[in-house]
Design a binder for these strands. Structure first.
Lengths: 166, 166
DNA sequence: GAAATATGAATGAACG
DNA sequence: CGTTCATTCATATTTC
């Protein structure tokens, strides 16, 4: 039994009410709420549960991004996917009669402790991954960057490149 | 002009070492490194992994832009994962130090035996819980968000916060 | 209990 | 230089 209290609350989970409000606003067409709006919304939502502007902002960002492109499998081969409409698919919640799963918008967590367990799938990332020696600090000594920051004032004109061949 | 698909599937992921160097330099106060510096840095970092000047430049730009985090308020959403099993109260080093969670490029886990007692006790969320009056869109009436979408211009600079205590 | 899915959060890249 | 988009990861919740 390794069950102990571990800093809970890692990810903000919108309450149904909050979700409703958020979706409603999103549906208004406001698209990308401005900072002021975010603040406003956050304040209102705060009364329905713990929330921060960051959460609201993220939510909108995710929502928008999600609306655009759903999950696509690994499509290899000339797949002519020309859809991408930007149409707000949004709430398919109530519309569906549940063969799938119940959105957390309606979940009612009881007082008990669920204690699910370990979801540590630890998604393996077989990327290139480098990983050098555990040298902590002492690599840039040959760089004059931290020696004399006041050197020149060259203008960097990188700015936005269209295609960068990495 | 547009329409450049660009096969940039994997954005450059700084290796821990690279990150360290970058942060170190950033901390030097150099602020915006000049092109020359960028080149220099890039060269050094190249020895720790694939990287381009553009990457370095972007990194600094992002770093600086995101350093201006003005977030505040609630404070939910910190996503720092602690792998420590006993310490639940970690000393936050605040903005002065780097916070940085686990780099995305460090989840190698070749072993495969992570018996971490991550028994999420289902974060105690005594918030306002779900289950509340069926009034869904009756709360934001005082919000002008859904009334006049075309009000001001975008101005959000949240993007993401570095870390905030709760 | 683990896998599959959903979604919030982090960050690199692009755009203005 | 500020802001937003896109991609990916981490964690939560649901399902098997």
């Amino acid at each position: 039994t390794i069950g102990h209290k571990m800093t809970a609350r890692q990810r903000w989970t919108p309450t149904p009410v909050q979700l409703q409000i958020l979706e409603r606003i999103f549906d208004q067409g406001t698209g990308t709420p401005s900072k002021q709006k975010i603040k406003d919304i956050t304040e209102e939502l705060s009364q329905h549960g713990q929330i921060s502007e960051q959460n609201v902002y993220n939510w909108f960002q995710n929502r928008r991004a999600r609306s655009k492109r759903k999950q696509h499998g690994g499509g290899v081969g000339g797949s002519s996917n020309n859809n991408n409409g930007e149409s707000e698919v949004e709430t398919e919640t109530e519309t569906l009669n549940g063969k799938r799963k119940m959105p957390e918008s309606l979940r009612v967590l009881p007082d008990g402790n669920n204690a699910i367990g370990t979801t540590s799938t630890t998604s393996p990332r077989p990327e290139d991954l480098c990983f050098q020696s555990p040298e902590m600090s002492s690599d840039l000594h040959l760089l004059g960057v931290l020696s004399n920051p006041r050197d020149d004032h060259s203008y960097n004109l990188y700015d936005h490149v269209e295609e960068y061949g990495m």
